[in-house]
């Protein structure tokens, strides 16, 4: 049973990593394109790279979403949901959500300050906030889950 639970937790963490990285690539590339378009800049030889990042990110995000559905049914079948989502999981989830909230406040303040110096559209600001709002809590949750201290004795 413990092996099965460890396996499910590893799968969940891999899916969360895929989701966070994919979203960062997808929306990060889109943000770069928005900024370039507003600034009237060209990517030149890097244009293909930016488009590939966008495509790979979008596909990765869609794939992660689909795999999460499969994962959820696998967890339900294994009847391990209450163990996987135990107290530590809820505790780490709360910390990650709080971290994401603080990161969003900090990013909003930075964008407001930046708005005094440079002009940018609401689309750019909202996309930047969306990236932070999704990736910050996911990353924090994954980091919290990685810390394993003194193991079995």
């Amino acid at each position: 049973m413990e092996d099965q639970i460890s396996k499910l937790i590893r799968q969940r963490d891999r899916l969360l990593t895929l989701a966070a990285v994919s979203f960062l690539f997808w929306q990060g590339a889109q943000l770069a394109m928005d900024i370039a378009q507003e600034g009237g800049w060209e990517f030149g030889p890097f244009e293909l790279v930016v488009h590939l990042c966008l495509l790979a990110g979008a596909l990765g995000w869609a794939g992660a979403s689909f795999l999460f559905l499969l994962y959820a049914s696998r967890v339900q079948r294994s009847k391990a949901q209450s163990v996987i989502q135990d107290e530590l999981f809820c505790h780490n989830q709360r910390i990650a959500i709080r971290f994401g909230f603080m990161a969003l406040i900090a990013a909003t303040a930075l964008l407001l300050a930046a708005d005094l110096l440079v002009d940018f559209s609401a689309t750019i600001a909202l996309r930047a906030l969306l990236i932070i709002g999704i990736t910050a809590p996911l990353s924090r949750f994954l980091i919290l889950g990685r810390d394993d201290l003194e193991d079995e004795s």
Binding site: S82, V83, L88
Partner: peptide, 15 residues
């Protein structure tokens, strides 16, 4: 009915 990691973090006074 918890994960091994929960026991680990309690023992190490993290949680």
């Amino acid at each position: 009915g918890v994960t091994r990691k929960t026991i680990n973090t309690v023992e190490n006074r993290v949680f």
